[in-house]
């Protein structure tokens, strides 16, 4: 199925999800006291901004037909390492350079593994995630929680401050989403990414530099992960490396798929990610207001994801004739 065809469809997953989001939002506004206030909406956005930042990069990666499961491990380890270096007395810029540089290095490694060694992205990044966490814990950081140093300066504002009443994390999310959306839609790199995701072999034959584009894609993903990590760490005054063990990375995929970006690549856009993020944010915020327990939230979240992929199946049906080997 080509993009042109799917565009022509009247009912897309994005529209459905957006409709659900609107319904949910209206429902909560009517029945949940204290939901529809400017402050709560800002809060709602703030609570999903780290998730959103990660999802935007993940969305772009998935559009290019790849996936990056190492983002959360990378964000935890690179930022924790940088913070620890500052705590140990290193100047902030140098420590940030080292942290960000190591993130970029990991991104390049991911890209090389996927593009040149041709390891399926799912497993390449799954393995690098284990390596990043393992190496970080074994060689760099001996403690789960690295506390935020006091002398971070403006960087600390990433998670704390507010501009015109909007929390900084939301602004970071918005800026990154806009930037990546522009890149994906209006630059050669972005259009190449779509072409690769749509059909890697065809893109290659057509002359698209498939391998460099993929490496770049993973590098971008790594940089975004580092930024997300800074936002997360400055917001909660610490970076807990055990965040790697949580289901966060799966929630990122949930947001992306929920928004209607097909896992097979080439379809959707950053807008879908934003819609998915909004739905999840509304949902989580409502759940928290309703005082619903964490485990129950997880179960409900699972059901939502299931619904999303079921809708995906209805809209983009796959059967025995169209399925490809290794497309899981």
């Amino acid at each position: 199925m080509t993009r042109a065809v799917s565009r022509k469809r009247l009912i897309t997953q994005e529209k459905i999800v957006f409709a659900i989001f609107v319904l949910l939002f209206l429902g909560f506004s009517l029945f949940l006291p204290g939901f529809l206030t400017a402050n709560n909406v800002a809060l709602l956005l703030q609570s999903v901004s780290v998730l959103g930042i990660l999802s935007v990069a993940m969305g772009a990666t998935i559009i290019a037909g790849a996936i990056d499961l190492s983002m959360v491990a990378l964000m935890a380890m690179s930022v924790a390492w940088a913070l620890q270096l500052v705590n140990n007395g290193m100047p902030v810029p140098l420590a940030m350079l080292i942290g960000g540089g190591s993130a970029i290095l990991v991104g390049i490694i991911n890209g090389v593994l996927v593009a040149y060694v041709e390891i399926p992205p799912l497993f390449a990044t799954l393995a690098t995630a284990a390596c990043i966490y393992g190496f970080g814990r074994f060689g760099l950081i001996s403690q789960d929680t690295v506390y935020l140093p006091k002398n971070l300066g403006w960087i600390a504002e990433l998670g704390h401050g507010r501009v015109y009443g909007l929390p900084m994390p939301v602004i970071v999310f918005a800026v990154l989403a806009a930037a990546i959306a522009l890149v994906m839609n209006y630059t050669k790199f972005g259009r190449f990414a779509y072409a690769i995701g749509d059909n890697r072999a065809t893109a290659r034959i057509t002359g698209v530099p498939v391998r460099p584009v993929l490496v770049l894609q993973y590098t971008v993903s790594a940089i975004v992960a580092f930024i997300a990590g800074l936002v997360q760490a400055t917001a909660i005054n610490s970076m807990n490396t055990r965040i790697t063990d949580t289901l966060l990375i799966y929630e990122v995929i949930l947001v992306v798929v929920l928004g209607g970006i097909g896992l097979s690549g080439g379809k959707g856009g950053i807008r879908n990610v934003v819609v998915g993020t909004l739905l999840i944010g509304t949902f989580l915020n409502g759940m928290t207001i309703m005082n619903i327990q964490f485990t129950a939230q997880n179960a409900i979240k699972g059901l939502i994801l299931l619904t999303a992929i079921a809708i995906d199946q209805v809209i983009n049906p796959r059967d025995e004739q169209t399925s490809q080997q290794g497309d899981i």
Binding site: G34, T37, N40, S47, T145, R242, N291, Q293, F294
Partner: peptide, 23 residues
């Protein structure tokens, strides 16, 4: 007013507390 599990996770605890403060 709120009795929830944050799963030993600081981020989750922050989210819960923020919402409760808002409410």
């Amino acid at each position: 007013v709120s009795n929830q599990s944050a799963n030993w996770d600081a981020g989750k605890a922050q989210e819960i507390t923020r919402t409760v403060l808002q409410q």
